[in-house]
Amino acid sequence: MNSPRRYSFVDRLLTQADQSLRTLVPGAAHANRPSPSQHMANVPMDEPERQHIAGLMRINHTGEVCAQALYQGQALTAKLPDVRTKMERAAAEEIDHLAWCAQRLSELNSQPSVLNPLFYGLSFGMGAAAGLISDRVSLGFVAATEQLVERHLDDHLAELPEEDIKSRAILEQMRMDEIEHGAQALEAGGMVFPEPVKAAMTLLSSLMTKATYRI
């Protein structure tokens, strides 16, 4: 029986570069699952409402760009092969969210944030640094991040107009997936971050949401 191929650090670095381009280039991300909203009809909305919904979906799209970067950075520096595999699997599942949000933005005649490359770079660096410290910290960072995303999704679901069933279907499925990813990270041995660290993450997240709502 052939043993699994072992990839060198350079091999993984080249793979990450390819994944980075797929994350940041519009239209390059392809979902493995169909969008939860694919069979739902668009509803009429006025211009301020459309712009507000587009702003929310742009925030969520950037959040998924950051999630990709975080997982890819952690996979690059993870010490244990099984942790690296978990990160790569989570990144693949999050691609669905990225593609769904991009599609919804297109339907709303809007576009992703121009700040995505900046936030990608910052998130990748944080993920790689967490992986260098320890796999336990890396997994804990995933859990804390997913909990933060879950709260954002709750807020956005509360802000969406009731008639916008397409955006709602996407965000509800994303919320379920994020809860599962966070729980899996803790079950795999992730540490529970102290409240001051979570507060700092919340502050950074708030800056991201304010910046990407309009641009």
Rank of each mutant, 00 (worst) to 15 (best):
N60Q: 13
I215S: 10
D82C: 03
I95F: 03
M176G: 01
T23S: 15
Q68D: 09
T202L: 15
C66K: 07
R168V: 04
G27F: 02
L132R: 15
L80Y: 12
L118N: 01
P44A: 13
P117L: 03
L98R: 10
S167G: 07
L118D: 03
D82H: 15
R151K: 14
A92K: 11
F141R: 15
V114C: 10
H52M: 15
H156E: 06
P81C: 06
T62V: 13
I53T: 09
S35N: 10
T85N: 11
D82T: 13
Q38N: 09
M174C: 07
A75K: 07
A31C: 05
A185Y: 03
M57H: 05
R6M: 14
I215M: 14
T77N: 07
E107W: 00
N109R: 14
C101I: 02
T62F: 11
A54C: 08
S106M: 08
V149R: 02
L118A: 14
Q68K: 02
R84P: 04
L80S: 13
L108M: 06
A17Y: 09
D135F: 02
Q16F: 12
S113H: 12
S113F: 08
G73D: 02
G182T: 03
S138D: 04
D82L: 12
Y7L: 15
M208N: 10
I215G: 05
L148K: 05
M208C: 14
A143T: 04
A211C: 04
A183K: 15
S110V: 09
Q51Y: 08
T77H: 05
D96C: 10
L14A: 11
S123N: 07
D11C: 07
R151G: 01
I170P: 00
I95A: 09
L132H: 10
N42G: 13
A143I: 01
K210M: 09
P196R: 08
I170N: 04
S167T: 10
H152V: 02
V65D: 02
N42I: 10
I165E: 09
M176Q: 14
S206E: 15
D96I: 08
Q147A: 09
A41E: 15
I133W: 11
I133S: 05
V83L: 02
A31G: 08
I170W: 04
L24R: 03
L24M: 11
H156F: 06
H181T: 05
L115I: 06
R89Q: 13
N60S: 13
Q147R: 09
A28T: 00
R58L: 08
L14H: 13
H97F: 06
A67K: 02
S8L: 08
A69H: 03
Q147D: 12
N32C: 06
F141A: 14
V137F: 13
Q103C: 07
L24A: 06
